[in-house]
């Protein structure tokens, strides 16, 4: 009888332990694993993640780590890849092509394409690139690759249809709000561009006219230092240093701590159907049904509360996952 009573006590205490340990994981979400340098990650500070059907590409402060479906791990460094420098701050998949960038503390490394066989490197000016300092990538619904730069606007890859140019560009001289591009997102027919002066929405060209709609403080945007964007046909969110911007009825509304944000200084966003994942220095939160749930952090198994990047993905196994890049490793959550 004694062992049974002990088990009953333990079982009775479990919910309490879970409560005191941290936030409750959103329904259906489970922490699958945490990867650190001990597991082969090239560096614990994860800056960007791209999820393909076979591989997951993890850009870190030092090199890129490729997580293979069979559990294997490969590290791409300047010695065994085309990458010139160590930090890999942005990465995206475009079909079977991997597009990425790298930089050192003192230099931007340009843009790189890995087609599965070889690397191609695109440089500032020489290859029509606006800058070697790349901040973000986005692949839109028409498979167009967009490249945000730190202070020279945007490039987009055109060489497949234009034999004379590799990249086109958008910049303030064409109507972009600010050349300091921090993030990109999009929905059919629209490229959303986050900058340090607000949001530009680009709808293409009409003759020689570039169709931009700019959202700035002048047009009523409550906060203009945009650091993350998450856009779908139905909704648009922007993470700022002052809170979460929600686009509703043609107007922007700023959500702060009073709305449940653990930290108004957003660091990453990812749309997950009708839900929104929100990353900040104070953990990972899920906005579901308009309600922001308590943050998930180190108490729930994340390596730290500081979130650097968020990516959703489904690999060949059919499981939906949230890849949470932090300062101390990569956390992978399973979701329904």
């Amino acid at each position: 009888m004694r062992p049974i009573r002990t088990w009953m006590v333990v079982l009775a205490l479990l919910p309490c332990l879970a409560t005191t340990a941290g936030a409750i994981m959103p329904a259906g979400v489970q922490l699958e694993k945490v990867l650190t340098v001990k597991d082969g990650l090239s560096h614990n500070s994860v800056l960007a993640v791209a999820v393909g059907p076979e591989h997951v590409y993890v850009g870190t402060k030092r090199y890129m780590t490729v997580l293979k479906r069979d559990g294997g791990v490969t590290v791409w460094s300047p010695k065994n890849s085309g990458l010139k420098f160590h930090q890999v701050p942005a990465v995206v998949l475009r079909g079977t092509q991997l597009w990425t960038t790298c930089r050192s503390p003192v230099a931007g490394g340009g843009t790189y394409r890995w087609d599965g066989l070889q690397w191609e490197w695109f440089e500032e000016i020489k290859d029509d690139m606006q800058s070697n300092y790349i901040s973000c990538f986005h692949v839109d619904d028409k498979n167009m690759l967009w490249i945000g730069t730190e202070d020279q606007g945007i490039n987009y890859y055109v060489h497949e249809t234009n034999p004379y140019r590799k990249f086109g560009y958008l910049a303030s001289k064409k109507g972009l709000l600010d050349n300091r591009v921090t993030c990109l997102s999009g929905r059919p027919g629209e490229l959303w561009i986050g900058t340090l002066s607000g949001i530009s929405v680009y709808r293409g060209q009409e003759g020689e006219k570039y169709l931009f709609t700019n959202h700035s403080k002048a047009t009523g945007l409550p906060a203009d230092h945009i650091v993350a964007l998450a856009v779908s046909p139905e909704r648009a969110f922007a993470g700022t240093t002052m809170g979460l911007l929600v686009f509703e009825g043609g107007a922007w509304r700023l959500l702060g701590k009073e709305s449940g944000l653990a930290d108004p200084w957003i660091t990453a966003l990812a749309l997950d159907g009708s839900d929104l994942w929100i990353g900040s220095k104070k953990g990972l939160q899920l906005m579901r049904g308009g309600r922001i749930e308590p943050p998930i952090d180190y108490r729930d198994g994340l390596p730290t509360a500081t979130i650097r990047c968020l990516t959703l993905g489904r690999q060949a196994d059919g499981v939906n996952r949230v890849y949470v890049g932090t300062d101390k490793g990569l956390a992978i959550l399973r979701r329904p």
Partner: peptide
């Protein structure tokens, strides 16, 4: 040093 976004970006600001 409050690196919620890069310090470099804040220097630029």
């Amino acid at each position: 040093l409050d690196e919620r976004n890069s310090g470099l970006l804040k220097i630029k600001l």
